[in-house]
């Protein structure tokens, strides 16, 4: 194990590299992933090292990318495809929902679909329309898919390893506003497959900060925001626990439950619109599990039921320190 400090985007790059070194069946496919290294440079240098047969610049057609990835998976490959931005995934939505998610069941388990779909998602980068969305609930709602989102470089590295090794399709949501955040990553000496110690299961939540008064649950880009909230609250004498869910399908309700049984209050935070969002699912399940522990209703902080706003308004739309603190105050007021 070598410990290296690197940005989240670089960790994904390193993870792809490890996976491709480990297994010749791993392919990287997407728009501009080759020579350019992806619009965020996440795949930088991979084509140079692994060649055009394995790092494949695709035609500009998302359904085609996912549809052919399904075919490649049926042939025994493990494609890792990149959708350039969250808002561009929808041409592929049909293939993802009607084919990728259901083919294993349709085949009564006789075929596996080890396809990873990487999607840079979320806002906060001042982008134009369709470049800042958080569509995770639309995928988490679909049986047959798994959805995860790392919040740190270490998770980005390891969770992508695990996603690639999964025999199920995994939608890998990358918090694009955190691409440049740095953190320590324990890199295996000899590749994932060689039996390096996996830090934790892919779909397990992590307590990112311990606290006693209230639980903040978040994933991806909002984990950092919640940690900042917890730090600010601590100055005011309030102790917040932060749970990094890491996985949106499945969700590790056990960890959230344990936390809520301790704190008695839960606020769920995500960038995605609150309405029909994952926060609603978490609120319902935790209410059922922790009814007698809850001191307040589960509250949610997230985007509005509005199209993602123009960049000059996104700070109003995205949950931030003040909006989360406001919800914390409301929950504590019960």
């Amino acid at each position: 194990m070598a410990i290296e400090k690197m940005a989240l985007a670089k960790a994904i790059n390193a993870s792809l590299r490890t996976a491709m070194e480990d297994d010749a069946k791993v392919l990287v496919i997407g728009e501009d992933v080759g020579k350019l290294g992806g619009v965020f440079r996440v795949t930088d240098g991979l084509q140079k090292d692994f060649g055009e047969e394995r790092v494949i610049d695709s035609p500009l057609a998302e359904s085609g990318i996912v549809g052919t990835a399904i075919g490649l998976a049926l042939r025994g490959y493990r494609p890792v495809v990149e959708i350039q931005f969250d808002g561009f995934v929808f041409p592929a939505y049909d293939q993802i929902v009607t084919q990728l998610a259901k083919m294993h069941a349709r085949a009564l388990g006789t075929v596996k679909l080890p396809v990873v779909i990487r999607i840079p998602y979320g806002g906060g980068i001042g982008a134009v329309e369709h470049h800042s969305e958080s569509p995770e609930a639309l995928f988490a709602h679909v049986a047959g898919l798994k959805c995860v989102s790392p919040s740190t470089p270490a998770d980005a590295y390891w969770m992508l390893q695990q996603a690639i090794h999964s025999d199920d399709p995994v939608i890998f949501f990358e918090p694009k506003r955190r691409y440049w955040d740095k953190g320590e990553v324990s890199l295996p000496d000899s590749g994932f497959a060689a039996g390096s110690a996996i830090p934790m299961p892919l779909h397990e939540a992590r307590v990112a900060r311990e606290g006693t008064d209230l639980t903040l649950a978040a994933y991806g880009p909002m984990v950092k925001t919640c940690l900042e909230v917890a730090a600010a609250a601590a100055e005011e004498g309030t102790s917040l626990e932060v749970v990094d869910l890491r996985s949106m399908s499945p969700i590790d309700f056990d960890t959230v439950q344990r936390s809520v049984e301790k704190t008695g209050r839960l606020v769920v935070v995500h960038e995605a619109p609150v309405f029909y969002g994952s926060g609603g699912e978490i609120a319902a399940r935790i209410t059922e599990r922790c009814f007698y522990h809850l001191e307040a209703p589960v509250l949610r902080v997230g985007g509005f039921h509005a199209p993602y706003p123009p960049a000059r308004l996104e700070e109003e739309y995205l949950p931030n320190l003040d909006r989360v603190l406001d919800a914390v105050d409301r929950a504590l007021a019960y």
Binding site: L72, R75, G76
Partner: peptide, 15 residues
């Protein structure tokens, strides 16, 4: 779903 399989076939053929 009409036409979906043509992409699977193409991907398989790429493989």
């Amino acid at each position: 779903v009409i036409g979906s399989q043509t992409l699977h076939a193409t991907g398989y053929a790429m493989g």
